[in-house]
């Protein structure tokens, strides 16, 4: 590490000030050029539909009928409690996000570290841990429905054998969200793979340095692994939040929002308004509220990131 900075520094002195600033100037438009496809893509494929949905959120659009402008009526209906499902679904979703995101990050990180060790059969273990992410939900939901069965399900059979209290799992209003969180831990494979890629980029000699200083595994974790993977931790956290707020398929397939709206996830509620009740204008308003919520969360995370995310290339 040290030798690298040294060489670079030596070389840098050779570069004159003026040539550097011309590079900077060129970089300004080159940067836009490199980013142009992505920016164009955003303007063409995303911005239009976004503006359209924002406008529709101010109408009573029912699909195929002409939308009438209703001002902020849709938003008012949401916040003044006329629609009992709104706060319920927001609560359910927040509960899920706050419970699931930290757990998923920790479990995925832990698994990635395990699978980054030098063990026999690594290929097998990695594939095994990633498998639940690939198996179609239709197949895995069948297993889950059986596991969670309060009478005959494997989980309660185990609980009984261990003399632990049994649970109603997804069949009770109070346990359905924690159970879905537990279920989501099976599919952290994607997050785990991103961590694995991050871990791979940590040079071995960092760890060697700690070993020379007499540090143990915990020291390595705290002083090397976590700081150096903080960009991936940050990425996974942001994505966890964005994805968590928009969780849809699992509750849709497993619980249909029940029991007693205990798993009425926000997107499930939104989808129902949009396509079952054909209240597209109203659904757009629901979507924009979520948009704002997610944006605030993301913004706050970006703000804190300056304190704990370490980019080697930033040279801060």
């Amino acid at each position: 590490m040290q030798s690298m900075t040294e060489t670079a520094e030596r070389r840098q002195t050779k570069v004159t000030k003026s040539s550097l600033s011309s590079i900077r100037r060129r970089e300004n438009w080159l940067g836009w050029l490199f980013a142009a496809p992505a920016i164009l893509g955003f303007i063409i494929f995303v911005l239009g539909p976004m503006i359209a949905s924002l406008w529709l959120s101010l109408t009573d659009y029912k699909v195929a009928s002409t939308p009438n402008f209703v001002g902020l009526d849709n938003y008012q209906n949401l916040f003044n409690g006329t629609d009992a499902f709104f706060y319920k679904s927001l609560g359910v979703t927040l509960y899920y996000v706050i419970l699931s995101v930290p757990l998923q990050i920790i479990v995925a990180f832990f698994l990635a570290i395990l699978l980054n060790q030098n063990v026999k059969g690594l290929a097998f273990f990695r594939t095994a841990f990633y498998l639940p992410t690939i198996v179609p939900l239709i197949a895995s939901s069948m297993v889950w429905l059986w596991l969670f069965d309060p009478d005959m399900g494997l989980l309660n059979v185990i609980m009984r054998a261990l003399h632990l209290p049994e649970s109603q799992w997804i069949y009770s209003e109070t346990t359905v969200v924690p159970t879905l969180v537990l279920m989501s831990l099976w599919t952290v494979g994607g997050t785990m793979v991103i961590f694995l890629a991050g871990l791979k980029d940590i040079p071995d000699h960092y760890y060697e340095a700690i070993e020379i200083d007499g540090g143990n595994a915990l020291h390595k974790l705290i002083y090397i692994t976590i700081p150096l993977t903080s960009p991936t931790i940050f990425f996974n956290t942001i994505m966890g939040f964005i994805g968590g707020f928009q969780v849809f398929v699992q509750p849709y397939v497993m619980t249909q929002g029940g029991p007693n709206n205990g798993s009425l996830f926000y997107i499930f509620y939104l989808f129902r308004e949009a396509f079952t009740f054909s209240n597209m204008g109203y659904a757009c308003a629901i979507a924009w509220v979520l948009f704002i919520v997610i944006m605030i969360f993301t913004f706050l995370l970006f703000r804190t990131s300056q304190k704990w995310v370490y980019y080697e290339g930033e040279g801060r």
Binding site: P49, L56, Q246, L270, A274, M280, A287, L290, M295
Partner: peptide, 10 residues
């Protein structure tokens, strides 16, 4: 932000 608006409305 393109990831923050649910696909159902876009």
């Amino acid at each position: 932000t393109s990831m923050m608006l649910p696909f159902a409305v876009t």
